[in-house]
Design a protein around this nucleic acid. Structure first.
Lengths: 219, 219
DNA sequence: ACCTGAACACCGTTCAAGT
DNA sequence: ACCTGAACACCGTTCAAGT
């Protein structure tokens, strides 16, 4: 190969490294090469810098990954025109889900880290305000938020690494070990199509909002 | 220290190693020392065996962790006397949650692995059967299952590593950076008590079941 | 069939040194 | 203040060898 020379150094623009650059390039690298590509050495190499240079901007790999989480969630646009509380919530968690699904490798990375980012406070505030409007008191509103965030992130996590990777996963499923093992309802439902992660998410959101609605009324 | 001798070898009973033993001892070790203690070398040491001995019973670390996941879920008792569909579902996911919370380190480990265990088919079958009883058709029943499993595992994951580690986490929260940052609803709700993970889970389950009920009726 | 020890190609991080 | 190279104490896994 003629022009194939290893030129990894001198990738940085004129203005050197900083935390922002480290984080956004980590996201680029994760998106391109997968979560396992994010090592201190690999990221340093990608940035054309020695591994130890990173430690001037992140205090550890854990800090890097937490920073990545905040970086991602901080850039989500949660603005919404519709002021109806149900639509406000729907929009909020749709946006959150979209942002996560746009960077599955980064999400995988975050799942290895101990504490969720402070960024979760933004969707939390939005949800509490919306539920307040719906007439659901503070104590229950917090539980309502936990329901919504748990569902959304649980679904995302499932979508990213669960056994149902794509729409026609039914084939793969049937081939495994469920045949004749007493899973009749599963076998029946695996045949049908019209199922995908997004419509499943929308269904879940609607069911939750209907449940919250009813809860608000009967209070 | 007088009687302090390193005796790690010869821990195995008379009947050597096997997959079951490797998996159950991995669970013991994870419970006792945390997820980061589960390395091929560390587990081998715990079993009094050379690292390479493990490869006769698991094909890789990934296989070990997936085996651990199946081992855990397979031992959950999903039996339930109550035949009402709502109670059937409630019991199923309560049991699943309890099993996960009993082994947080194992759950953390599983989150690092690519594919969820086949074991998820058991709660899935139970849920589909219950929703069938409720009059919810196959296509929607699968979505209902996704809602329930996503919520349950999302909550568990959040509980294990989220920012609200214990009940009085409000203190820790207030000390961080939310003060005066426009999070008025959060600040208000952080003051109240009577919130804990279990009651939050029960609230979520009830809201979902109410939503599914309503969905079944209006169909 | 099952286990061992040495080796390989990696990790994250510390430390002493450079500018 | 920011970066470097060498080194340390780890990883998972391959391989050749033992019983």
């Amino acid at each position: 190969m003629p022009g194939k020379v290893k030129t990894r150094r001198k990738r940085l623009g004129r203005e050197g490294l900083n935390r922002e650059r480290v984080l956004s390039e980590a996201l680029v690298l994760a998106d391109r090469e997968g979560p396992e590509a994010i090592t201190m050495r690999g990221l340093a190499d990608h940035l054309g810098v020695s591994p130890m240079a990173l430690y001037n901007h992140v205090s550890s790999k854990k800090d890097l990954v937490q920073g990545l989480a905040e970086h991602l969630v901080n850039h989500v646009d949660f603005s919404c025109d519709d002021s109806h509380w149900q639509e406000r919530i729907r929009s909020c968690f749709r946006r959150l889900r979209d942002a996560c699904l746009a960077h599955p490798s980064a999400i995988r990375l975050m799942e290895t880290v101990e504490v969720a980012p402070v960024s979760v406070f933004r969707p939390m505030e939005i949800t509490l305000a919306a539920l307040d409007k719906a007439g659901i008191g503070s104590a229950d509103a917090v539980k309502g938020y936990c329901l919504l965030i748990g569902f959304t992130m649980g679904q995302v996590s499932y979508e990213i690494r669960g056994p149902f990777r794509s729409f026609d996963a039914g084939e793969a499923l049937r081939r495994r070990r469920i045949a004749g093992a007493g899973f009749s309802h599963i076998e029946r439902s695996v045949a049908l199509d019209g199922w995908d992660f997004t419509s499943s998410f929308e269904f879940g959101l609607s069911v939750i909002l209907a449940g919250l609605q009813e809860f608000a009324l009967k209070k």
